[in-house]
Every structure is written in structure tokens, then in C-alpha cells.
Design a protein around this nucleic acid. Sequence first.
DNA 1: CCATGAACCTGGTCGC
DNA 2: TGCGACCAGGTTCATG
Length: 272
Amino acid sequence: MPELPEVQAVVDNLKNNIIGEEIISITPLWDKTIKNFNPKKNFNKNSPNKIIDITRRAKFIILHFSDFILAIHLRMTGKFYLSNNKIIPIYTRAVFDLTSSKQLIFEDIRKFGRIYLYKNLETINKAHGPEPLGKYFTPKWLIHNLKNKKRMIKSLLLDQSFLAGLGNIYVDECLWDSGIHPISKSNKIPYNRMKNLHESIQTILKKAIEHKGTTIINFSYQQNKQTGNYASKLNIFGKNKEPCPKCRKQINKLKIAGRGTYICNYCQKIFR
DNA sequence: CCATGAACCTGGTCGC
DNA sequence: TGCGACCAGGTTCATG
């Protein structure tokens, strides 16, 4: 599913259209989607809740209201978009009705996505590491914290409590770009490659955001099936048996950290 | 503390 | 064409 750039695309797409809109009801079509609140209690016609802002934190879409926030996580197959045609697609799991008579639609084939209500961002902030494009994620921070851990680098980069927002695609791309084999121990990576990794993470995420994310299967950030086109920029993810763009040797696919992982054995060194 | 695998779900693809 | 096995952008929990 959506990783940081894809979630950012959803937020950027909605930003110009839903700020100021009022939610009068949230109707779950799959009960587990609404995780920790009673939508009837918090949203009703008598006290509409105005959307003050929409932002992203980690892989969450954050809707800001005067007294609380909604945090929406798309997990693997979630979509969240504004609709004005009253059509409820087959995999819709929750519908937000707005005073303008438009609707926010939460679609999710696999039903893993969740919507949370919190007082503020504190709960999410406590459980997550820094934003990779934020001011706290410096080369110094990364080097210090990689040395501090003795974990497989792929697991560590996927761990949202370490660094927020990376997922399986971008971790593979970043490790390939910086020449680090995913099973390397974080504390054994040479200083220069740690610096490369920091650079790779920032440039790859920035470029992916410019391209509105990667669409591998069916992710779209808009109702009309608008998809990001960063998939055409991927160098290694999904390219089993194809030549490595750097050395032309064959890319391999294996399972690392429980996830499908693409590597070039020649360009990515194992440090242990 | 860390790694692994299962669980949560549904659909698509591949091989026989 | 049909069917089973396996895979999928994520996270959380139990187990060793």
C-alpha cells in the first residue's frame, strides 16, 4: 500500500477541496474500519464538525477539527477521496457525508485500513520516529541511530517507530541507491554509505512526491482513478530477473524481513 | 532486544 | 476453464 509519497498525494489532492467542509455523519459499511470511536456520537447533524486542515504524519492522513483529529490509515489497499456523485463503490468501507452534499469515500478491498479519533497528534507522535523529510532527520541523526542499533537494516527502515513513512518499495529503492544489502547490520554500515542512505531517502521520497507516488496495483489518490507515475522511475522494486540499471547484472528477488525484496548482489554490499 | 511467522482480508496471477 | 498455491504498498501479536 501506500507509503509516504502516496499518502502525501492523497493529502495534497484533498487539501484544496475539503478545508472548510463540515462532516455531518460517518457511516461504517465494515465495522472494524472505525477503530476507536463511536461515529454516531462524534458526528451528527446537530453538531457538524468543520475540517480545519488536512495534513500527513507518517502514513496517516490527518483531518483536523477544533476539538480532535481523525487519523486515517490506508494500510494495503485503502483509498480516500472526495466524491460528488452519490455513488458508493463496491469496496467502500466508510462514507463521510458533508454539508455540501458531497461525500468522502473510504474504499478498502482488504479491510485492513483503519480510522482513529484522537485528541491530538500525541499518540501517533509517541509511536513514530521522525519524518524523513523533516528537520530532525539529519545525516547526523541517522548515523547516530544506525550505530545505536544492531538490527538488519531493512527491518529497521521498515520500523515506523524508528523512521516514519518508508515501506517495502522505497526501502528497497533506497538501499539499492546507496549500495547497501538489506540484510546488513545497521551498526556495521560504513560512514559514507550511511550518508549515502540519508541522501537516497530524501531524494527518492522527494522525487516520488513530485510524481504523486507509485501505483503498482490499484492505488489511486482521486476518485477518477488518477494515479501517480513514479512506478516508471523505480530502479529495482518489482524487477526480478531484469538487469540492474547500474551494472547490468541480474536483479534477484528474495524474502527478507518477511517481505519480497529486490536486490543487486553486485551493487549492494553486505556489512556484518 | 530482535527475528520470525501468523493473523487480519480479498483479489489477481501463475502453473498444472 | 477450473482449482489450488502463492503473492500483494502494512501493522500487530505471539513465540523462541
